[in-house]
Amino acid sequence: MTELLRPIGDGSVFGAVHLGYVVVQSNRLTDWRRFGVDAIGLHVDELDSNTVRFRLDDRACRFLIRRGSAEDVIALGWQVDDHEAFDRIIARVTARDVPVIEGTPEEAALRGVQRLWRFAGPKGIAQEIFTVPVTTPEPLRMQSSGWVTGEAGLGHVAILSREPETTRGYFHTVFDSRLSDYIDENISGLKMKIRFLRVNERHHSIAIAGLRGVKIDPIRTSVQHINIQSETLDDMLASFQRVTELGFRMQWSVGQHTNDRELSYYCVTPSGFELEVGWNPIVIGPELESTWEPTTYQGISIWGHTTVGETVLDKFAQFRQALRSAGTPEITVPELAGGLIR
């Protein structure tokens, strides 16, 4: 990551952190393979009967799908550029008595990294950090012409939280995230505020949504969606057509967001959380970074992003999930939610 994005001498790791990979546990590996390869257009490597990996670039792994019953994202992997930033993150976590565990060599190999360290994250999603990814010279075999990763990382993760300020505090404490902007949205009469956090030049690597005045969560999965970014508009639209033709559920039609101006659509993965495939969002490079001020936008989209095929049964299922969630405390890591150690 360019040093221009990293403050000098203030102990910040901003600009040195990038979303590297996503780990999913699922028993629907056949569906995941068809979804990733035939619909989205990713490169696939089937390591064994229990493991599917997807590539988007020269990294050995960007999505790891391991057999298991969760049907959910269970870990996020974050690349840290240098040992100084890595040590700073580890010190912040351990100073607050949150255990840090080194991953096994097998876990590291599956994720396409040399070594990794793991600690607890919001909503039970393990946060894993590493410094050296494994790359491969093997040519990509995929329908897409390419994906935007590099300095901006893999994409972003969106979380619906009943404790949004605590979750925001976590990523500020651990990664020095910065607030890009807010979106206020009305959904079925409920007011939702979404906080968009950046850790590098990508407009946001983390989005945190919360319902104002109501601590409910209508989503079964720990993440609402994962985002990846197409290199071209043609690639994004072609994958939209394939998803539709192959019968995978489309959640939100093509539209454009108000804040980062990304064109995108949302479809439902075999595990139930959504995948956003986007194109051409704003990049907050060094010039914009120096003058950026958070703004509150009214509504998620300038145009499009209309719901597709949602039924009364879907609404009822969300209502039942919300009722269940109200009686169960959300998993947080309060030790890491309250400011920085300098």
Rank of each mutant, 00 (worst) to 15 (best):
residue 49 S to P: 13
residue 31 D to A: 15
residue 78 W to Y: 06
residue 36 G to W: 05
residue 20 G to T: 12
residue 117 W to L: 12
residue 12 S to Q: 02
residue 97 D to P: 00
residue 131 T to E: 04
residue 43 H to R: 09
residue 115 R to F: 14
residue 42 L to T: 03
residue 91 A to M: 11
residue 105 P to Y: 05
residue 27 N to K: 14
residue 59 R to M: 09
residue 47 L to E: 08
residue 108 A to K: 04
residue 65 I to T: 08
residue 128 E to F: 00
residue 105 P to A: 04
residue 57 D to M: 03
residue 86 F to P: 07
residue 89 I to F: 08
residue 15 G to F: 12
residue 50 N to T: 15
residue 10 D to S: 09
residue 100 V to G: 06
residue 82 D to N: 15
residue 12 S to K: 03
residue 98 V to F: 01
residue 114 Q to P: 00
residue 46 E to M: 00
residue 102 E to W: 12
residue 55 R to M: 07
residue 26 S to Y: 06
residue 96 R to Y: 00
residue 94 T to G: 06
residue 99 P to V: 01
residue 99 P to D: 02
residue 116 L to H: 14
residue 125 I to P: 08
residue 38 D to L: 06
residue 105 P to D: 03
residue 96 R to W: 01
residue 68 G to T: 01
residue 66 R to G: 14
residue 128 E to L: 06
residue 114 Q to C: 07
residue 119 F to N: 11
residue 45 D to N: 12
residue 40 I to T: 04
residue 115 R to I: 11
residue 37 V to I: 15
residue 21 Y to A: 09
residue 97 D to S: 11
residue 96 R to F: 03
residue 106 E to A: 15
residue 34 R to M: 11
residue 126 A to L: 10
residue 81 D to Y: 04
residue 34 R to F: 05
residue 97 D to I: 04
residue 35 F to V: 03
residue 18 H to F: 09
residue 17 V to F: 01
residue 86 F to V: 06
residue 84 E to Y: 05
residue 22 V to S: 05
residue 86 F to A: 01
residue 71 E to P: 05
residue 33 R to S: 07
residue 106 E to H: 11
residue 112 G to F: 07
residue 129 I to E: 00
residue 62 R to M: 10
residue 69 S to L: 07
residue 79 Q to E: 13
residue 14 F to R: 03
residue 95 A to Y: 01
residue 128 E to K: 03
residue 118 R to D: 02
residue 47 L to V: 12
residue 68 G to K: 05
residue 33 R to H: 15
residue 79 Q to P: 04
residue 17 V to H: 02
residue 27 N to T: 10
residue 60 A to I: 05
residue 73 V to A: 02
residue 84 E to A: 11
residue 72 D to S: 00
residue 58 D to H: 12
residue 71 E to Q: 15
residue 121 G to W: 08
residue 129 I to D: 08
residue 80 V to K: 00
residue 98 V to S: 04
residue 82 D to Q: 10
residue 63 F to L: 13
residue 100 V to I: 12
residue 130 F to A: 02
residue 123 K to Q: 13
residue 87 D to C: 09
residue 56 L to P: 06
residue 56 L to D: 11
residue 68 G to L: 04
residue 97 D to V: 05
residue 76 L to F: 03
residue 47 L to T: 09
residue 108 A to E: 02
residue 99 P to E: 08
residue 59 R to F: 09
residue 111 R to Q: 14
residue 46 E to A: 15
residue 110 L to A: 11
residue 91 A to H: 14
residue 20 G to N: 08
residue 86 F to C: 02
residue 73 V to Y: 01
residue 84 E to Q: 14
residue 90 I to Q: 11
residue 16 A to R: 15
residue 107 E to C: 01
residue 103 G to N: 07
residue 114 Q to V: 15
residue 116 L to N: 14
residue 128 E to M: 11
residue 131 T to W: 13
residue 84 E to S: 08
residue 24 V to S: 05
residue 78 W to R: 07
residue 64 L to E: 01
residue 83 H to P: 03
residue 27 N to D: 10
residue 75 A to L: 02
residue 101 I to D: 12
residue 54 F to N: 03
residue 64 L to Y: 07
residue 65 I to L: 12
residue 121 G to D: 11
residue 22 V to R: 01
